[in-house]
Design a protein around this nucleic acid. Structure first.
Lengths: 169, 169
DNA sequence: CAAGCCATGTAACCAGTTACATGATTAA
DNA sequence: TTAATCATGTAACTGGTTACATGGCTTG
C-alpha cells in the first residue's frame, strides 16, 4: 500500500457512497461534499479514473453519449478502500499558510500583526459559515463536525491572540 | 506576488528571526521549529536559497569551509516578507488524510469505524504531546498556541465520535 | 585510520494546478 | 442560430519527495 493515494481513496469512497457515476459527476461531488477535506479538479480526476480502471479498482458500467463513462467500484476496489481506512495511519502533517502567518507574527509590528490576525479570524468565520450551511444528514457528517470544531477553535485563537497583542504593545 | 511562495516566506522569516545561517542550519531549524506549520527538506531548501539569492532576496554574507554559504536577508527580501504577511490572504484550503478518514467513516462497519477513530485520537494526542514539549518563549509561540488548541479540538472530536458510534450501533 | 556525523548537492519522480482545446446539448 | 452550459480531455508547469552521490571534519 503506497503513500499518497488519497485521491484514489476519495474517489472510491464517493463512488461507494453515491453509486455509479461519471468523471463529471465525481468532479461536482468533489466540489460540493469533499471540498473541506480534499480537493481535486476534473483535470486530475479524469486521468486518475482511467488508471484506476486499468488497475482493476473500477469497472466501466456503461458508456453514454459523447464518451461519457459510468464507473462502478469493483470488489478489488472495495477491498482497497477498506484496507486503507483500517490500516493506513493518516499523515498528521500540516502545511498551512494560516499557521505560517501565525508563526511569523512576532516579526511584525503590532499594527501589522493585528491586521493579519483579523484577516485570519475572518477566514475562519467564513469557513464556519460555509460548513454550517451544509446538510447535516449527509454521509460526511463526522468530517463536517471536525471541520466546524476546528473553525471555532481558529476563531477563539484569533480572539485570544488579538487580546494578547493589545495587552502587550 | 505569486501564489505558492510559502517556502520562500518561511525561509525569509527564519533568517530574519535567527540571523545569518547556512542551508544546513535552516534545514535543521525547519525541522525543529517550523515542523508543525510547514515542512521542507534540504533537497528543497538548497536550490531555493540559490534562486532567492539570484532574485535579490538574500545575499551570501560569507563562504566557509566545504562550500558552506551563510545567507542574510536583503532589504528587498525583508520587503517581500512584510508584503506577503500583510497583503496575502492565506489559503484556507485543507487537504487532510485524517479528515478524509473521518469523512468516510459511515462506509465502515461499527468496529472498523471505532478502530479508525481510536487511531486518529492517538494521532492527535501524540501531536499534542510533541507540541507541549516545545519551548514557550520561542518566537513561534502564536502558531504553537494554534496547534495546541487544534490538537485538543481533535481529541475532543474523537471522544465525541466514539461516544456517538457506541450510541448508534 | 576508520567510523560516524557534518554539509552540500543532483536527478528522477509524483501530485496538483493552470491553461488550453474540443465538441455535444439545451434554452432563448 | 447563437449563447450558455455540459462534458471530456491534453500539455506544460510548479511544488514537493525519494533516492542517490560526494566529500570534509571529528573523535576514538
Amino acid at each position: 500500500m503506497l503513500a499518497g493515494m488519497s485521491l484514489r481513496i476519495a474517489l472510491l469512497g464517493l463512488l461507494s457512497a453515491v453509486g455509479p457515476a461519471s468523471g463529471y459527476d465525481l468532479a461536482k461531488k468533489f466540489e460540493r461534499s469533499l471540498n473541506h477535506v480534499w480537493q481535486a479538479g476534473h483535470t486530475q480526476i479524469y486521468p486518475e479514473l482511467v488508471k484506476m480502471a486499468a488497475d482493476g479498482l473500477l469497472a466501466v458500467e456503461a458508456e453514454g453519449a459523447r464518451g461519457r463513462k459510468i464507473y462502478t467500484v469493483t470488489a478489488e476496489g472495495d477491498h482497497e478502500l477498506r484496507t486503507w481506512m483500517v490500516e493506513h495511519a493518516p499523515a498528521g502533517a500540516v502545511r498551512s499558510e494560516i499557521a505560517l502567518q501565525a508563526f511569523l507574527l512576532p516579526l511584525m509590528t503590532r499594527d501589522q500583526a493585528v491586521g493579519v490576525v483579523e484577516r485570519i479570524k475572518a477566514e475562519f468565520e467564513a469557513r464556519l459559515e460555509t460548513l454550517d450551511c451544509k446538510p447535516r444528514d449527509h454521509f460526511g457528517r463526522y468530517a463536517l463536525d471536525l471541520g466546524l470544531a476546528q473553525a471555532r477553535t481558529g476563531i477563539r485563537w484569533a480572539e485570544d491572540t488579538l487580546a494578547d497583542l493589545k495587552d502587550h504593545p
